[in-house]
Simulated scan of single mutants.
Amino acid sequence: MRYYEDIEVGETREFGEYHVTKEEVLEFAGQYDPQPFHTDEAAAEDSAFGELVASGWHTAAMCMRMLVDGPIQDRASMGARGVDELRWKRPVKPGDTLSVRTEIVDKRVSESDPTRGYVDSKLEGINQDGDVVISWIGLGMIARRPDDAEE
């Protein structure tokens, strides 16, 4: 288990592999973001994208899944305080394969609760061509090692 004290600013990781399917794009959009360029191939051809594309929220969810299956699973995660600077940089299409790159950009001990630390991480979702398709700064909360938190 990695605690707050084990995480260093500047630390980077690349991980994950998520294959985007047309069925999943249509299902997610139908449930959560039913705009025509996410739900209807013919309508999407006449859109600014020119083809069916995944919802940006779906892209975020796919990256979140890789994050949970990646570094979060071995951290003493206590959830998050939010997300800053969310950007959809390029459309994600059925057939794309996504991966994730993270960098720790800041960390500090909570002033109100010394048993937790705040760890801010930049996340970039990357497609098979190496293009960044989404980015955000995750505002994580990580438990401090019990002996260190008492000091």
Rank of each mutant, 00 (worst) to 15 (best):
M1V: 14
E5T: 11
E8N: 14
E11G: 07
E17L: 08
Y18V: 05
H19Y: 07
T21W: 02
E24Q: 14
V25A: 09
L26D: 04
F28K: 05
G30Y: 05
G30D: 06
Q31Y: 01
D33W: 01
Q35T: 00
T39E: 01
A42D: 15
E45H: 05
E45F: 01
D46Y: 01
S47T: 03
S47D: 05
F49H: 10
F49L: 11
G56D: 03
G56P: 02
T59D: 06
T59M: 06
T59Q: 02
A61D: 00
A61S: 15
M62Q: 09
L67P: 00
L67I: 13
V68A: 13
V68G: 08
G70D: 02
G70T: 03
I72V: 15
I72D: 04
A76T: 07
R87N: 03
L98D: 10
E103T: 15
D106C: 08
K107Q: 14
E111R: 13
S112Y: 05
D113S: 11
E124V: 04
I134L: 10
S135R: 08
S135Q: 12
W136E: 00
I137V: 14
L139V: 04
L139M: 14
A143D: 08
A143K: 10
R144K: 13
A149Q: 04
E151Q: 13
